[in-house]
């Protein structure tokens, strides 16, 4: 079957694509990079993990819908309580960014208090009997279809379904037309009688829900320690910047490239260095893992600051023909 380094890279690519498209959507509607986006992911991870453990479900996949709705609800609450009132007061972009940082701090405290202190300590005996904790669901045996890991089927399938559903919503429904109009020109849309506030609430729900879905599947693929939020934020921003922050498909492509290259390049480099210099040298390479999304971000900002979707690919191809 597939080489494990490639299959892992594909799974991470799909998960980061879901997270990045959410960030791109919030950026398109509110015009602010949301620094709390990775916390939607983490809240969703631990809500679905708690639901799985305390609900005695047979497989962690069954509680992924919990992650979907918790992520969406968190995003809507954040938009209604923080960003909407601030935008109404005419806050500029730097103030909005600081507000999202504040939300990030609040949620870090909340996640730590509820999941790492309360649940882990009060239910320590219960969790001990179960043999696993909230942050290592990836230790559980995955189901297999024709010898392929379940996550390798579920993650790409979820991404494809979500992309198709989002395209249908945006391009085939009346609400989608209203949504695109509100994103393109909120004032004109308001004049034409579109309820822009409702459109924004829905798009924040979609963004948070996609982040939550990515998170729910992320906890099955990878261990998710308390610091997960601060690690994945680098990937999410790199993917969204690579995609250009102006198009949902750009977000999907950017997220996939970042997740894929981060995992795959590190595996290839590690095996190469191991073969050349011995085992200990290769193990140091993984410490540069988060350097890859950062490098992608820097190169994107230097070469194509408006992202992949801004490049005129036809002209680009003609030049090399």
């Amino acid at each position: 079957m597939l080489d494990p380094s490639i299959s892992n890279a594909i799974v991470y690519g799909c998960l980061y694509a879901m997270m990045c498209v959410g960030l791109t959507l919030t950026y398109m509607t509110t015009k602010v990079p949301n620094f709390a986006h990775s916390d939607f992911v983490v809240v969703a991870i631990f809500s679905s993990a708690s639901a799985f453990i305390f609900g005695n479900f047979s497989s962690p996949y069954l509680t992924v819908p919990v992650a979907f709705f918790v992520g969406g609800a968190t995003a809507v609450i954040m938009y209604l309580l923080v960003l909407k009132p601030l935008t109404k007061r005419g806050a500029n972009i730097v103030v909005l960014m600081i507000a999202t940082l504040a939300v990030d701090t609040i949620m870090t405290g909340f996640i730590g208090a509820v999941f790492f202190d309360y649940i882990s300590k009060v239910y320590a005996k219960f969790l001990g009997n179960k043999g696993y904790y909230l942050f290592d669901l990836n230790q559980l045996p995955d189901f297999h279809v024709f010898g392929v890991n379940g996550i390798l089927i579920v993650a790409p399938a979820a991404l494809v379904v979500m992309t198709v559903a989002l395209s249908y919503l945006l391009y085939r429904t009346r609400f989608g037309v209203a949504m695109r109009a509100a994103i393109e020109n909120p004032n004109l849309a308001r004049i034409l009688g579109i309820n822009v506030e409702r459109v924004y609430v829905v798009s924040w729900f979609v963004a948070g829900a996609l982040a939550g879905l990515g998170g729910g599947l992320y906890s099955i693929q990878s261990p998710s320690p308390p610091a997960t939020s601060s690690y994945i934020i680098v990937d999410i921003f790199a993917g969204a910047v690579l995609g250009g922050l102006t198009s949902l498909y750009g977000g999907i492509i950017g997220g996939f490239i970042v997740g894929f290259s981060e995992t795959y390049v590190i595996r290839v480099l590690t095996s190469f260095v191991n073969a050349t210099y011995g085992y200990a040298a290769g193990s140091q390479i993984t410490t540069f893992q988060k350097g890859i999304p950062l490098a992608i971000m820097i190169i994107t900002l230097l070469v194509i600051p408006k992202g992949l979707t801004s490049v005129d690919w036809r002209r680009f191809m003609r030049r090399f023909r």
């Binding site: 600081i98 939300v103 701090t105 609040i106 405290g109 730590g112 208090a113």
Partner: peptide
């Protein structure tokens, strides 16, 4: 943890 949440909430209220 409560201190962290309080500081974050205070910042939003001030903004």
């Amino acid at each position: 943890r409560f201190e962290t949440m309080f500081i974050g909430a205070m910042l939003i209220v001030i903004l």
